[in-house]
Design a protein around this nucleic acid. Structure first.
Lengths: 229, 229
DNA sequence: TTACTTCACGTCAAAATGACGTAAACAAAT
DNA sequence: ATTTGTTTACGTCATTTTGACGTGAAGTAA
């Protein structure tokens, strides 16, 4: 190993997670109430320091498992944050990741950390510690642009879903109205989804057909348009 | 400061640059021939370690200035690389940035590092040290998708340029043919460029009009379409 | 003048989009 | 059994955008 290579002082390296969940027509983010300084009793994004022999995704999994009890979720690197004053303890670089999960798959509230971990509507966020407000904002913006051309929305829904449910998800995330009939046409023409032949039973009105995500979909084969007027 | 916060061993943090330049209808990347181990005599992306009080962009500027003599260039964060074996000296995280420059603004070749620094056609790249092949590939892919909806192409051209020059740039980067008349229509309809009223003189044939980038352009107001058949 | 090339602007059929209409399917109330 | 109210599924159609080309004007060199 080269001389004095590791004798330089290095910044610490943290991974911070923006965990999105969708439920009841609401897009939420999972926050953690810190028990230690700095930002004791403040809400923050779940995060942790990178271990020497760990990949980013390894750190993500460890954080998800230990702090929220979740595993096997969609993860994507967001951005790396280098603000000099972002952590009062010293120089800490944060690599931001965002996760998309279906809250129905997990049972966050019932854990031992009942009061420490909580879902927050993205429109009703508390003040966040560190620079986590910036990280959250960027993640939300990324999600909004991403669902327009990439089928990440499915990560937030059940495996089987109706077109209406998918439509509501898009309207919720994009915070706009999208014509229901044109949306259906786009989704179906692009072969974005596959009709399973089954229907969702037990609803008030006409039983809608259940679809699943078309995993053989070729990349960049579709584009949702939104009036940004 | 909290107890033992900086006593953990931290990975080193490097910044690696993919510097794109466009000249003579060729997209090139600036590479550095390493003088030290590891990867001595190998071509690599210019890079350097993040100093404790430095931002990523600060490191980028320092690398650009000391290793290539350039300053004031377009820079954008690409991705962070965490491969466990990416540096034989130990654990090094790399934050990748890419730069878009107009080589005409600088004089790389004539520096003291004449043999150390060289432009390579993106199609004629040598074998690269570290995981720099991956970083380069991702940067190229990012550039290709970015110019379709964001006017970054202008960073590679002179301040004044003709529609034909812009058209050739797009064809070069996207490695495809784009109908010249439809391209012109798209660019003009989107008010992507402003006609300066002047013409480029001294050419063989009809003197084309010179345009400049419309800096008041609203984001996401245009989309170049390419046949990916 | 002629020849040749590039530039600037048009044309037009086909495809995509945006804005709606409406009948069928279902549960609950009458 | 019929009606009512709602959601789902599938259309229609005018307008806009796209893709594929045509062509005259501007310029240089022969």
């Amino acid at each position: 190993m080269a001389k004095s290579f590791h004798e330089y002082k290095n910044p610490s390296l943290a991974v911070d997670l923006v965990i999105f969940g969708y439920h009841d027509n609401t897009l939420s983010v999972l926050l953690l109430n810190r028990k230690e300084e700095p930002f004791k009793d403040c809400w923050t994004l779940p995060g942790g320091f990178l271990q020497m022999e760990e990949t980013f995704l390894g750190t993500c999994s460890r954080i998800l498992k230990t702090k929220t009890g979740m595993d096997d979720v969609y993860l994507e690197q967001l951005y790396s944050f280098d603000g000099l004053g972002r952590d009062p303890r010293g120089r800490v670089i944060a690599v931001g990741y965002y996760a998309l999960i279906n809250p129905a798959r997990f049972n966050i509230i019932a854990g031992s950390m009942a009061n420490d971990v909580k879902w927050f509507d993205v429109h009703k966020m508390p003040k966040l510690g560190f620079d986590h407000q910036d990280i959250f904002q960027l993640a939300l913006q990324r999600l909004k642009s991403k669902i327009l051309y990439d089928p990440v929305g499915f990560e937030l829904l059940d495996e089987l879903f109706t077109i209406t449910e998918l439509h509501e998800l898009y309207e919720c995330i994009l915070e706009t109205t999208i014509d229901r009939r044109n949306f259906r046409r786009k989704i179906l023409d692009a072969e974005y989804v596959i009709n399973t032949g089954t229907k969702r039973e037990g609803l008030q009105n006409r039983h809608p057909e259940l679809y699943k995500f078309n995993k053989k979909l070729k990349k960049n084969s579709f584009q949702i348009n939104v009036n940004v007027s």
